[in-house]
Design a protein around this nucleic acid. Structure first.
Lengths: 209, 209
DNA sequence: AATGTCATCACACGAAGGTATGGTCGGTGA
DNA sequence: TCACCGACCATACCTTCGTGTGATGACATT
């Protein structure tokens, strides 16, 4: 069920100038990268491999959409690919806004091929790191959702450092029952020690927040 | 021994144009902020309140020093104050470089007073958050350094989730001795539960790394 | 020489954690 | 209706943890 082991990264180029898209594609392919060009954000969103590792190279001025707004849109849509922005008519406030929003880089046109290659390399690297921690976090959430409500309550108190006796008191249970839920939580979460369970709980907390 | 409870934040303005320094100072004072102007980075480094909360507003083009290089220099010197950069003759790559290096904002001159006020507010806020987590981390390190070598070894294995018996085996000790070191570590670290100790260990690991 | 810290261990006991057996109760879906 | 699951509890037993008492030896400081 896991995807075919690490597909090679795809660079999605979104620019309404086909010459630039083609040129950039061949430059990136020349360094062994998989590149794909789109004429608009709509075309891009229709692509089927948005879940594959990679990054996005986005022109700021596009028909219909503003590149900066689209950057925010991507977050909203749950597309976590790192973004590199480029523009022919940008200014400093624009670039600052983009960087604040998490862009990997912001390149004024014309740029040197090497600069774009460096930016794309950095972006793909960032994506790789993101994916690694994301994947680990998802595995933990997957296990967490199999816990019953009571097991979750007990797990929360256990990882807060409380003793079984205290937990029993707070939840109005007997100590034995707490132990049962606690044991079930450990088993379902796949934690081989309390320390592991604590770290999993912290990972869960830092998600979505 | 802790500093007088939260001194109010100081905005350090570094610009070789005294008019700008004075003007900006009064603008910031008008919104209740403590501002201080310097003509050069050297003057700034001679200031005595670099440890107080606040931020730095730095011109890029300064006599002798480049603002971007100085930004890196500050990190090297261990001055953790957030930096806002401003410039009369900047370009996009410059702003991108600054943002990548962690600048809070990058304002082209002339800028609107309100934009600078917003940037300074954001910077001071970032500083406040940084200080909070830094202070907590330092408290943990302070306690950690009081541990004997053995106690540190045992703490590492305990927080890795190992049982006393295993630890005794790995270190070639009797289980009793492990318990003693373990207890000492808990006491010295001020941890009231294993969960707390695990989190402290994680905080220690994430420091300096 | 005296003091203090670190490190080590034995013995012992009570507290806390973990698991198993066996049983009750209520809700859900086949 | 039956089977299943979540939640609950008691009794029992074993393991692990925490701490105290008492003791030894090394090494550094005063």
């Amino acid at each position: 069920m896991p995807d075919p082991p690490d597909e090679s990264p795809v660079v999605h180029i979104v620019d309404d100038d086909p010459d630039l898209g083609d040129g950039l594609s061949s430059v990136l392919r020349s360094v062994g990268l998989n590149a794909r060009a789109y004429r608009s954000t709509v075309d891009f969103l229709r692509a089927d491999d948005l879940d594959a590792p990679g990054c996005i190279v986005l022109d700021i001025r596009l028909p219909g959409t503003n590149g900066l707004d689209f950057q925010a849109e991507l977050v909203r849509l749950g597309v976590p690919l790192p973004v590199i922005l480029m523009t022919g008519h940008g200014d400093i406030p624009m670039s600052v806004r983009a960087m604040k929003a998490g862009a990997v880089d912001f390149l004024p046109k014309p740029f040197r091929d090497q600069d774009m290659i460096d930016a794309v390399t950095a972006a793909i690297n960032r994506d790789r790191l993101q994916r690694a921690s994301e994947q680990q976090a998802v595995a933990i959430v997957d296990r967490y959702v199999t816990l019953s409500p009571r097991e979750r309550e007990v797990m929360a108190l256990v990882t807060a450092g409380k003793m079984n006796k205290q937990i029993a008191g707070e939840l109005g249970l007997s100590e034995v029952t707490v132990k049962i839920h606690r044991g079930a939580a450990m088993r379902k979460m796949g934690a081989r020690s309390l320390a592991e369970l604590v770290r999993m709980a912290d990972t869960l907390k830092n998600r979505t927040r």
